[in-house]
């Protein structure tokens, strides 16, 4: 009978089987159904946009950071997400520039993965929104033949795309904002509406996000608090004045689902404490409704997330948990004043 072995090793004793690369690639695979749905709704144009954005981010990452960081998949996620938040008919050279900006200005300039303050894909989109405001708000209508282009995807670099001979249509949010017409919740949930490549099918995004939350690869508190806040705030506004969009419409339209599930939960740019995640999500939810209802643009998810990204370091500092056995600083201060 052998004696029980006694291993004496230094901590940590618990190891997580997850590596950065494993998490990142799982997220990439969870995005594939959404990409496939985008292909179903918008045809080959959507796939071209996503593929170009991904190629561009991966190439930029390879150029700036060398071959070592490609394996962790973060550049691939950025590329797929960037492709998903652009309209299907966008000229591909613009998409490629967006990819370069995402990695170059969104990530590499801060020092690479883990150092960036803002979500790289949203930085790329914000740049494109400011640089090419017309191309990025030309929304093709879903449906039609798979191989029919949804716009002048192959416009020559630096040149304007020729006027599209496809039908374009305002997004549900644009309709609500400028013409005060609602869109049925049913088509919003299924995704049969105008919009960016990947922000159409709310149901599919929820399913994929639910899988990631189940694997614990995203903090469910962030999407939950964003949706709760945005839904309740919008519902309250709708009660006060029925001209404002209702809570369900607010939740299922535009980029809120994709933003809440995939953009806001980026591990690098979201708070590290659970309490901080609630604050972060509530802030995004409030800002989304504020921008959508009173802002100049019909959609505000991108700016809401970027604004709250910039507050993450402060949220982290403010929500530090109390170290076991040490009194909270506020109580110490009170004691000092009393004595």
């Amino acid at each position: 009978m052998s004696e029980p072995r006694l291993d004496l090793t230094a901590s940590p004793h618990l190891h997580s089987p997850d590596s950065t690369a494993k998490i990142m690639w799982t997220v990439v695979f969870s995005l594939l159904p959404i990409v496939a749905a985008a292909g179903y709704f918008f045809g080959i144009s959507a796939l071209l946009v996503v593929a170009t954005a991904t190629l561009s981010t991966v190439a930029t990452e390879r150029l700036i950071s060398g071959p070592g960081t490609l394996g962790n998949g973060s550049a691939t996620i950025t590329g797929v997400l960037l492709g998903l938040v652009l309209p299907a008919g966008m000229p591909l050279w613009m998409v490629a520039i967006g990819g370069v900006v995402s990695i170059g200005l969104g990530k590499a300039i801060f020092g690479g993965l883990g150092q960036n303050l803002f979500n790289p894909a949203l930085i790329g989109r914000a740049f494109l929104q400011a640089a090419f405001p017309q191309a990025i708000t030309t929304w093709p209508v879903a449906g039609g033949s798979f191989f029919a282009l949804k716009g002048d995807n192959f416009a020559l670099p630096l040149m304007r795309g020729s006027a599209p001979d496809v039908v374009t249509h305002a997004t549900p949010l644009g309709l609500m904002k400028f013409e005060h017409t609602g869109t049925g919740i049913g088509s919003l949930i299924l995704g049969n509406v105008g919009g960016s490549v990947g922000e159409t099918s709310a149901l599919l995004i929820l399913i994929c996000g639910g899988y990631l939350a189940y694997r614990n690869y995203l903090n469910w508190r962030i999407p939950a608090s964003i949706m709760l806040t945005a839904g309740l705030f919008a519902a309250a506004l709708h009660l006060i004045n029925p001209l404002y969009p209702g809570g369900l419409f607010m939740l299922f339209s535009g980029g809120l689902m994709l933003g809440a599930v995939y953009m806001a939960t980026d591990m690098v740019t979201s708070p590290i404490t659970h309490k901080g995640c609630w604050i972060f999500g509530i802030g995004i939810g409030l800002l989304v409704v504020l921008i959508r209802v009173w802002g100049g643009l019909p959609e505000g998810v991108m700016y809401a997330i970027l604004i709250m990204n910039s507050l993450v370091p402060f949220i982290n500092r403010a929500t530090q948990p109390r170290v076991f056995g040490v009194e909270a600083p506020s109580r110490l201060k009170r004691k000092a004043v009393a004595s």
Partner: peptide
């Protein structure tokens, strides 16, 4: 760049 140039408004 000619008349078809798409300006980078930013």
């Amino acid at each position: 760049f000619g008349p078809n140039y798409e300006p980078w408004v930013i």
